[in-house]
Design a protein around this nucleic acid. Sequence first.
DNA 1: TTGAAAGCGTTACCAT
DNA 2: ATGGTAACGCTTTCAA
Lengths: 361, 361
Amino acid sequence: MSFNSDARGSNRLQNAKNLKQLAEALGLSQTTVSRALNGYPEVKEATRLRVRETARRLNYSPNARAQGLATGRAMAIGHVIPVWSEHEMTNPIFGDFVAGASSCYSKHGYDMVLTRIEVDDEENAYRQLVFSGRIDGIIVQGPRLRDSRISLLKSLGVPFVVHGRSSGIEDNYNWVDVNNKRSFKRATELLLDLGHRRIALLNGLEYLDFALRRRDGYMEALSERGIEPDLELMRSAEMTEHFGHRETRAMLQGTDPPTAVLASSKLSAMGVRRAIEERGLTMGHDVSVVTHDDVISYLADTDDVPVFTATRSSVRDAGRLVAEMLMTIVKKPDVRPRNALLETELVVGQSTGPCLSRRLG
Amino acid sequence: MSFNSDARGSNRLQNAKNLKQLAEALGLSQTTVSRALNGYPEVKEATRLRVRETARRLNYSPNARAQGLATGRAMAIGHVIPVWSEHEMTNPIFGDFVAGASSCYSKHGYDMVLTRIEVDDEENAYRQLVFSGRIDGIIVQGPRLRDSRISLLKSLGVPFVVHGRSSGIEDNYNWVDVNNKRSFKRATELLLDLGHRRIALLNGLEYLDFALRRRDGYMEALSERGIEPDLELMRSAEMTEHFGHRETRAMLQGTDPPTAVLASSKLSAMGVRRAIEERGLTMGHDVSVVTHDDVISYLADTDDVPVFTATRSSVRDAGRLVAEMLMTIVKKPDVRPRNALLETELVVGQSTGPCLSRRLG
DNA sequence: TTGAAAGCGTTACCAT
DNA sequence: ATGGTAACGCTTTCAA
């Protein structure tokens, strides 16, 4: 019946699975169709419209692999989750950070590729990732002290932005960071001003650079007031609820317990709270707690109650910012390294908040 | 100077950027090298070893785009973040779920591609994603009532697994879900057994299927005890801390406040707690709170204190399971639809826990 | 056991 | 303004 359906109604095709079919249906060459679709100026406006319309009607959508092969661009950014053999290191902030970053990418038409990389053969894995051609740029998470990835990625010639910094690296590189040292110094000073002398620090894993900076700030504040740091009050591990609970309990059972706790994350602060309440003590009365998530700004999230927690949106903003920076570099690779130091703001309302209320001494 | 460097020291190349160069360095054809690297049986073992060694030495790594173009496989799985124009819907569980899933993918050598899709033109976006060839399979998150994506993806012929279910869909499809209805029914019954009659439900957005199921369970438990549900006590929105705080405060200010709150997420439960304490009431004494994250099992996370929270690892396990299922389907597309209903377990320790302690009546 | 050559779906260069 | 054709880097027949 429908013999020769090709010659007669060549534009009555159901679907165009590739450029060739679409071009045939239109009676145009692949070249022209490609140009029309990609907005090249040399194509007649009428043609462009007809091409667009037909492409839509035939449900055509380009093959990203082939596009990438031809252009050298992958239209995707890689985020790497470092995996230690011991612990999995799931960053509690991860979700919001990713949400912010990916919203930026999608604005530019980019995708986000998540890869887990074993820290053991990191070098090889990054090399493979870069040469696989799946990505155009990389976000480096959780930089360590003198992190070797920075020089590696530089030598590979791939655009990258580091979320955080790596102490001990002389080279220039792109980074976005929070002023961890300053904010922990200020938080410690705040507690000192309130009369506290036994201030505990529940820090993240101290091979991560941000944790080192936080400890520095804490130590500096103490030493400037002539207070000897007590190693009993300085604990460091993955920032889980369990960690906060365990260490706080241990410290409260000690001979000279802390009157304040500086917790490195919201999650561990929850554990701190639990330990305090278990002991029949009251938060903000018997023991003060200051939380610090890896954030841009500390905000009171309602008008009348000051709380010291990372707002979800601030983390998202950090993701967005890092991504935005990478986008500009990817699109214009010859820009010089840039960086942004986001000052942490401690917003303290009334001293009647639930966490931090008691003035000692 | 180094003219003809190609012919003389052909295997003294620094790096092989593609198969061609590697083959030249080895004095073999691309075909043989490809076969050697991909473990085809017809290649001599000595050759394979030599090829592997040289590939390593010359830092060769295959181009995934070209591989994908040639094989039709992308070695990547797509996760879609649905975006409503109004709110961004960042699932608090997202991070751990992704961590679990990606650990499964990496075990199989797959990557994970995150895409944001505007709910407005969902159909088109999914179609593009599939035909772009960037992915071999899709994880569907946050299914709605009679979710149209299921039939769409089926018709597109792409392997997919749904995290959750969609009520009203007759078709078979692959899914992994928690027994939301049953667990909320049991949680409600638990509170009823303790003598509570005014039980509030802080539910997630009720166009999401899981929230509907939870409400069903809550309602069924009430009706079986002959209790009329009070719409004043049933609130539904995105599960944020702010939501928990706002609604709880409103309810506690009402004429007939609840004596117990069933919160749909840990985050909103934190808000509930804050509202309770602001009012000078005590958790577990004046008001009981049961939290339910979207989890597999409810576990007491220490030996001596029962708490009703989602453990992070359980969410991770869910991600792993969903991914594992998709992997088997992707590798063997002709398997029949399968699904898994993960029973929620309520572990209740002593009734002396911080959240749920008071026996009324 | 090895190799030559034809795809895979695009884009980009060079004509016209 | 449009078309032919050669890349892009790999896998996979088909031959030898």
